[in-house]
Design a protein around this nucleic acid. Structure first.
Length: 566
RNA sequence: GGGCCGGUAGCUCAGUUUGGCAGAGCGUCUGGCUUUUAACCAGACGGUCGCGUGUUCAAAUCGCGCCCGGCCCGCCA
């Protein structure tokens, strides 16, 4: 480098630019056909590679702990590209690596069971985990004792998440790729070309020196992934190692000092090599990844692929991270939500829609304002069916993307507005929910049964949302038992008036009016009288618009309750 | 400090690749409905498109400089 003239440097730069693909610009490829959907632009790029069938799309994460909604990017982003390519007549495999030979580097403060319930580290056998710091996830016993290993436990949850959003993935265990020898040839190749490997990687990592060996054996004595290789015998397919201390963040995981020999199946490649090795072994044509990889492992990864492994790296795509209610995901801070949690709050298609949006934009997944997202989806859907006015852009996006977001577009479906569904959730009587929805005109006589069922399923979800956020819809009609109350005489008299009025049979607005009238008649401040009503029906001082609500609940109960008789 | 991505109405977001009147939903306000109580309908209000500058007949869109937020530039993944 030092002997080169400036011209040569420029030529080098030129060369590098020509062969280096930016993972950012894929969504809007200059000079190419403009697409309304980013996955179409990515699919163009994949097709340009003239890939062999089946086309392989990969994602992957380290099953290190609670797999939260952010990890779903790895699944859904790839899925949309896979679907677009399938539409175009290609055979596509979507594989997903659980990078489960990675060592446990620090104790997670929070874990979760297979149902997705968060569990504090203190509630499981933490010391057993502590002893396994530095060991591959697949060699650590499952703290919940329900799966074969720690790695399997969290891999299972990832698989469940993919199932829940109805994305077919082939989950591949990286440990298995090593153990079955599928990564053995590429591992040997890397060790055979250690000099090249060092040279390439040293451009990205300062620590890579003469002694660096791109292989980390697992200590046969203590089971930890070690970093000190003392000799390599490529022909025999073994390395000698000494089990030394490993730096992990701010702490040190101590090695046992054992000296031994490991085969190429008994260890792992460092990530910067493992990733490109996976591309080669699995034949990966496209892989999305988070922005943390964009300036680190992606540049080195494509360099390793081309100049060490001599393969063409996959089409890349960066996705922005999103936040949860404005804060970064953090299981230790409790700011975490799992796919299973989200699906208790909204339909899978709404979640799929969220991931169909532009990956280059950082977004907030706001549970507090989940109604906005659901409204947005409902509108998106209505635009697809031509039910509402929309701009050209919105229409084009909906027409292209909606069929990829829902399984089976059905025009007769019914969507209750999310906040209205939350109001219906104030009663747990399914018949009453349906009746109110009918009266309010959301369900009509000739609607098919499946559509009604689907509509009312949202009520349960909106109810969960109200309960989880404790928002203004979090009221529960106290039907079985009358709440404690203490009213003065004028209030009781006004309630008696109101009961008599309701008994006569009146509409929602009339009842609303009578609430004012009866309060005035007995000199009860209107606000206080409303509070009395909310106390009787919800055991709260506030609540939904009372007249319409009461008019929709069965009359006998309302009258009896106003008279404090049940 | 260097590289990269993002910044559009109170909130959530389209629009930027290909320059052509600044958009939607939600919220707010007003009215529909005599009098604070949240579901429905109609209307209105709401913007230095992060800031500055250049190019252009014309800039949210293109160039340059800057500000703010995030990621990377140690290790690990």
């Amino acid at each position: 480098m030092s002997a080169e003239s400036p011209d040569d440097v420029d030529a080098d730069e030129e060369q590098k630019r020509a062969t280096t693909s930016s993972p950012y610009t894929v969504q809007r490829d200059e000079g190419e056909k403009h697409h309304v959907f980013w996955a179409d632009a990515v699919a163009d790029r994949v097709e340009e590679r003239e890939p062999e069938e089946p086309i392989v799309i990969k994602g992957g994460i380290s099953p290190s702990g609670v797999p939260h909604l952010g990890n779903v990017n790895e699944i859904m982003r790839g899925y949309f590209v896979a679907e677009v390519l399938r539409e175009r007549g290609h055979e596509v495999r979507q594989v997903f690596t659980a990078d489960d030979r990675d060592p446990l580097r620090k104790l997670p403060r929070t874990l979760c069971d297979l149902e997705g319930n968060l569990v504090d580290l203190g509630e499981v056998n933490a010391s057993a985990l502590g002893r396994n710091l530095g060991s591959p996830y697949t060699d650590i016993p499952d703290p919940f004792e329900c799966c074969d290993s720690y790695g399997d436990h969290f891999s299972n949850i990832i698989q469940n998440s993919a199932d829940a959003v109805d994305v077919p993935i082939e989950l591949v265990s990286t440990t298995e790729l090593y153990e079955t020898g599928q990564l053995e040839d590429v591992t040997r190749f890397v060790l055979e070309h250690q000099d090249r490997a060092r040279e390439v990687l040293s451009a990205y990592q300062d620590k890579v020196d003469e002694d660096y060996v791109p292989f980390n054996p697992i200590c046969e004595e203590c089971g930890k992934v070690t970093e000190t290789v003392t000799a390599v015998d490529v022909d025999a397919g073994t390395v000698d190692y000494r089990c030394t201390d490993m730096e992990a963040g701010d702490q040190t995981i101590s090695g046992c000092g054992h000296e031994g020999t490991a085969t190429l199946r008994e260890g792992k490649l460092p990530w910067r090599f493992e990733w490109p090795a996976q591309w080669q072994v699995l034949g990966v044509d496209f892989e999305p990844f988070g922005k943390d990889h964009a300036e680190g492992s992606w540049p080195s990864g494509q360099d390793v692929a081309r100049n060490v492994l001599e393969i063409e790296p996959p089409v890349p795509m960066v996705y922005e991270w999103f936040t949860l209610d404005g804060e970064p995901f953090s299981s230790s801070e409790g700011n975490v939500i799992l796919v299973s949690d989200v699906l208790e709050l909204l339909e899978p298609e709404v979640l799929r829609y969220f991931f169909a949006k532009d990956p280059s934009k950082a977004r907030d997944f706001s549970v507090e304002r989940l109604d906005l997202l659901v409204d947005e989806f409902d509108r998106f859907e209505a635009i697809y069916f031509g039910e509402v006015e929309a701009s050209e852009d919105e229409r084009a996006f909906a027409e292209r993307v909606y069929p990829l977001v829902v399984d089976e577009p059905r025009e007769e479906r019914i969507r209750l507005p999310y906040t209205f569904a939350a109001v219906l959730g104030m009663t747990d009587d399914p018949d009453l929910r349906e009746e109110i929805a009918r009266r309010e005109g959301h369900i009509s006589e000739d609607d098919p049964e499946w559509a009604i069922e689907g509509a009312l399923a949202r009520v349960a979800r909106a109810r969960n949302w109200a309960r989880r956020t404790e928002n203004e819809f979090d009221y529960e009609l106290k039907r079985s038992e009358i709440p404690d109350h203490d009213f003065d005489e004028p209030t009781e008299a006004a309630l008696a008036d109101l009961a008599a009025f309701v008994e006569e049979g009146h509409g929602p607005e009339e009842i609303q009016g009578e609430i004012y009238e009866s309060a005035k008649r007995h000199d009860v401040p209107v606000g206080e009288f409303f509070s009395a009503g909310y106390r009787l029906f919800f055991d709260e001082s506030q609540g939904p618009k009372l007249g319409p609500f009461l008019s929709n609940v069965d009359r006998e109960f309302v009258v009896d309750r106003l008279r404090r008789e049940r």
